[in-house]
Amino acid sequence: MAKTIQSPLPGTFYRRPAPDQPEFVAEGGSVAAGDTIGLIEVMKTFHEVTAEQAGSNIRFSVENEAPVTAGAVLAEMD
């Protein structure tokens, strides 16, 4: 069954730590539990979104820099 990663906060979702740096995780990549998969920007602060469990073949359901609500599914993985 697919595992989901949800946004803990409303705000703007970013897939890179900075505009000139590579994505935290590439589409289709794997993550370990606790890995950062993106950032949510809100109230002038950036909050790291981490994977609660390990997974592979990650599929992002939200575009970079898209607005998200709390609880929105950011990515699914196997």
Binding site: Q6, P8, L9, P10, T69, A70, G71
Partner: peptide, 8 residues
């Protein structure tokens, strides 16, 4: 608490 549903 769980995920925010409405309000802030």
């Amino acid at each position: 608490f769980g995920f925010l549903r409405s309000g802030a």
